[in-house]
Design a protein around this nucleic acid. Structure first.
Lengths: 342, 342
DNA sequence: GTTAGCACTCAGACGATGCGAGTGCTAACA
DNA sequence: TGTTAGCACTCGCATCGTCTGAGTGCTAAC
């Protein structure tokens, strides 16, 4: 559906203004912002029509207009300007993020924190899901005479560990045997290829020593498993409290985010593109007053995860979208650097 | 200062009741809870005196009484009952926590989450500070031809890692040399003993190879350093929103907690005992409407860190203190098990 | 020392009033 | 036919007085 050029202009002004002030916008204000090229009465007629068409809403009969969801959608798709990040801002962020650990989870936590700071919203992200990740190293560290820490490092730089309680005392042979098993069966293998049948084969080949080894082998399998799951990260939830339109359901919203289970599904199903989800376009009713902006990042050309934000529907889309786009591409680049190996 | 038995009883009833309902407590209510052993007029006289003595306050002239800070303090020190945790509750928690990783940080995160859930408050804790911790293992994992991950494991089960960018291409000799250096200088050494002069000695002994090795050695030093700092953990901040008396400064309070820097000082200076800090007894004015209950835990008999909660001053001290005490001793026990080595 | 009785206080709920920003509509104008 | 000035109208919001009821402090009798 196309609107006249003037309606576009008026809608655009109203949304910009509303985003800026949070107050309903009246016909006089719009006329002034148009340098009184037309009178407020004309604007009023146009605004009434925009109301009828569903792009604007009136909180009550005698108040100014605020954007409806449809209005925001139209604005995001066709009207809003683009403000690129300043160069020095970009290089500042780049430096911050390069200084961080390049362990993927740590990197994404840092990136999310930056994004939360930058946008004044809650930042969400998923750790990379990459089935082609390969196990690079498996190490044992004795902790006590009955327990060991198993450490696993992957080609994508992930580091996972787990303490493993043993049913038998730890001996040198046991440890050597484990390293032999690991060298043959684990090192260089994709994390997604370590599953039940494979473990049974290993157990079978061990004969009477299988039992002693079982808990260690299982620990490795668990760690490999946990590498394939992408995890949901959340930073800067507190920022949500600064938005007065979210105050009413702040508790509900924040509990929902904290819980995470549901939300993570939403994020992993994302397209690699940037997506803006406004109000009740969100599947979950806890988010009906919120907008979500997500951008997928890719590692080595593969769609790997997303970073983005959650904030009120009244949010500065034009300014924030470039920030999110920039951070997601930066994260992708840094993670690709780590993965591009040997 | 001692109060008469009857005043004790009345104060106790008022505080219990106020904690329960959040409403100012009137003389009639108190009389009823005393089975009308005395009339409400008598109670009124006593309450007026308790007001004069500073144990109670009146939000306005014609309302019931609420506890003052001094009142809470007296209550916590001398009046309140003790409700021990139910046995099945205790074993449930024990099972949950034993099932968790025994990596200290992960364990404390889990313990804090349990505590937050249990108390409906925000849980805080510090990771163990233990200068006697010894480096058990240092590993290198090549990531690309110019970067390696350095992994460090300590006797207390801590696992730290860092990616290290190299100025020269990685060779087998380089790696072997590093492992030799590590075996001699790092393994079995206290994390607190790795500092500048020591690094200089290593560098000196290497001669012309010092330069290639420098970034790796520094990385180890950084990791050792990070083991000596105890970190502040925070869980369940969202719970604070459920307390209506904190609503007014929820943003301020949560920002303060998120920031952490200041708070962590507070926690590390704690005694090993349980401490209750009420309202403005807290040094920070952001906490003037909050109470903090902390309990130190010890690892191998050494005071190592704290776990506790932050909530409104109107909080069920009698019920929560035992929970916190239980969790701190449990954390101490589990961490000691990991540390009691060889 | 305890109690009944009573006048008093004050927060909170409720309704009336006035203000003003902003509207929709009509009629005149270009 | 589109634009504009003018005007009556709407309605949220702030303000003010009134009323109610829970709870008090005080006094005088027990």
């Amino acid at each position: 559906m196309n609107l006249s050029a003037r309606k576009n202009k008026i809608l655009s002004i109203i949304i910009d203004q509303y985003i800026l002030t949070g107050e309903p916008v009246g016909s006089k204000t719009v006329a002034a912002l148009l340098n009184n090229a037309v009178s407020s009465a004309t604007i009023r007629n146009e605004m009434a029509e925009l109301c009828d068409l569903g792009y604007l809403e009136q909180p009550h009969t005698s108040s100014g207009r605020i954007p409806s969801q449809k209005g925001y959608r139209y604005y995001v798709d066709r009207l809003m300007g683009r403000y690129e990040l300043a160069n020095d801002e970009m290089s500042r962020i780049e430096r911050q993020l390069e200084g961080a650990s390049s362990e993927p989870e740590a990197l994404l936590i840092k990136a999310s924190a930056i994004l939360a700071e930058l946008t004044g919203c809650a930042a969400i992200s998923t750790t990379p899901k990459d089935e082609h990740t390969v196990i690079k190293k498996v190490e044992l560290v004795p902790i006590s005479n009955r327990s060991m820490m198993v450490v696993l490092v992957t080609s994508s730089g992930m580091l996972k560990s787990k303490v493993c309680r043993m049913d038998v005392p730890i001996t040198l042979e046991l440890i050597e045997l484990f390293y032999n098993i690991a060298a043959v069966n684990f090192i260089g293998v994709k994390v997604s290829d370590i599953y039940a049948p494979m473990l049974q084969n290993i157990a079978a080949s061990l004969g009477d020593k299988a039992f002693d080894m079982l808990s260690l082998v299982n620990a490795v399998a668990d760690l490999a498993q946990s590498c394939t799951n992408s995890e949901l990260l959340l930073e800067g939830e507190v920022n949500l409290l600064t938005h007065k339109e979210l105050e009413a359901n702040a508790l509900e919203l924040m509990s929902f985010l904290q819980d995470g289970g549901l939300l993570s599904k939403l994020l992993t199903e994302r397209s690699p593109q940037l997506s803006v989800t406004i109000g009740s376009e969100n599947v979950f009713k806890e988010l009906e007053n919120s907008s979500m902006i997500l951008s997928g990042y890719s590692v080595m050309g593969q769609n790997a995860g997303s970073v983005g934000i959650i904030g009120p529907t009244r949010i500065d889309y034009a300014r924030l979208i470039p920030s999110i786009r920039f951070l997601s591409s930066l994260v992708g680049r840094l993670l690709t650097e780590v993965s591009e190996t040997e």
